Amino acid sequence: MVMQRLEGKTALVTGGSRGIGRAIAQRLAQDGALVVLTYVRDESAAHDTVERIRKDGGRALALHAPLGRRGDAAALWAAYDAEIPHHTPEPAVDIIVNNAGIGLSAGLTSLTEDGFDEVFAVNVRAPFFIVQQGLQRLRDGGRIINISSGAAHLAMPEAIAYGATKSALDNFTLNLAKELGARGITANSVAAGIIDTDVNAGWLRGNPEAEAHAASLAALGRVGRPEDVADIVAFLASHDARWVTGKVIDATGGSGL
């Protein structure tokens, strides 16, 4: 049995209804946290995740919280403030996981201004203002964990804007660690590699050649699973990671070595 090392903690996980976000929400709940997960479109998936967590003895709730437009972070926190008192007498937050993000396959010559603006709005601006506007709710000794990508540190011209957003997110993490260290708050990024999720299902699942190629990119010789990332997040969220901050933790299985 996993020790309830997050008992009494509250975690916000953006984009927590599917894929990596779902695995993170489930793992943090398993460790004892009350998990507040957000979703944009797939309400049924969000509620399914909540029900799975509750069935396993955990605590969770889902908030509809679109990201990418001005005012979205404020709306998210307003929804949080309205709902959280129904679930805990302590309305503060201990762990913020900025997982929600979008991909964009477009190179230098094909990238549009609208596409550029959207991917930066969701992947960079939203985490920035979620943290900024959540600081008054974030307890001293809290955790900020940003889900980044191995693309931040590799040349991938076919996803140039996406990679740039993750580089920006990693720099944001670095500055948060310096800014908030006096409060005992740690900030770290987890750089995911190719993960078998619904997002990648179209080109990965059922395609042995694609799966073999993706597996060959990792030193550990397989495609990543959502739990591979979630377990790292759980460590960073715990007291065990109290002396780790301002770092990008590689979760690519050794891709690009």
Rank of each mutant, 00 (worst) to 15 (best):
M1E: 06
V2L: 15
Q4E: 12
R5C: 11
L6K: 09
A11D: 05
G16S: 02
S17T: 06
I20H: 00
R22G: 03
A23W: 07
A25E: 05
Q26E: 15
L28W: 09
L28R: 02
G32M: 10
V35A: 06
V35D: 07
V36C: 11
D42N: 15
H47F: 13
T49H: 02
T49P: 02
V50K: 00
R52W: 14
I53Y: 12
R59M: 13
R59P: 00
A60W: 12
A65Q: 03
L67M: 11
G68R: 05
D72H: 12
A73C: 06
A74R: 15
A78W: 10
A79R: 14
E83P: 14
P85Q: 00
H86W: 15
H87P: 00
T88V: 06
P89C: 06
E90A: 15
I95Q: 07
I95F: 05
I95G: 08
I96W: 10
N98E: 01
G101W: 08
I102M: 11
S105C: 09
G107M: 02
T109H: 13
S110A: 10
L111E: 02
D114R: 15
G115C: 01
F116N: 08
F120C: 00
F120N: 01
A121C: 08
N123Y: 03
R125M: 02
A126M: 03
A126D: 05
P127C: 06
P127A: 02
P127K: 03
I130Y: 06
V131W: 04
Q133G: 07
Q133T: 07
G134H: 08
G134Q: 06
L135V: 05
Q136C: 08
Q136A: 14
Q136I: 09
R137Q: 07
G142D: 08
R143T: 09
R143W: 10
I144M: 05
I147T: 08
I147F: 08
S148E: 05
S148C: 04
S148T: 08
H153A: 14
A159V: 13
I160N: 06
I160T: 10
Y162L: 04
Y162P: 09
G163H: 06
A168T: 09
D170N: 14
N171T: 10
F172D: 01
F172A: 00
T173V: 04
N175C: 10
E179I: 13
R183M: 05
G184Q: 04
S189L: 02
S189N: 01
I194A: 09
I195Y: 10
T197H: 02
D198W: 07
N200T: 15
A201R: 12
A201P: 03
G202N: 01
R205V: 13
P208L: 06
E209V: 12
A210N: 14
A212E: 11
A212Y: 03
S216Q: 05
S216N: 05
L217N: 10
A219F: 08
A219M: 15
L220C: 10
L220W: 01
G221P: 03
G221M: 00
R222T: 07
R225H: 12
R225W: 06
R225E: 13
P226H: 09
P226C: 10
P226E: 03
E227L: 13
D228M: 05
V233F: 04
F235R: 05
A237R: 04
H239V: 13
D240C: 09
D240R: 13
A241Q: 05
V244P: 02
G246Y: 00
D250V: 11
T252N: 01
T252R: 00
T252K: 00
T252L: 01
G253H: 08
S255L: 07
S255C: 10
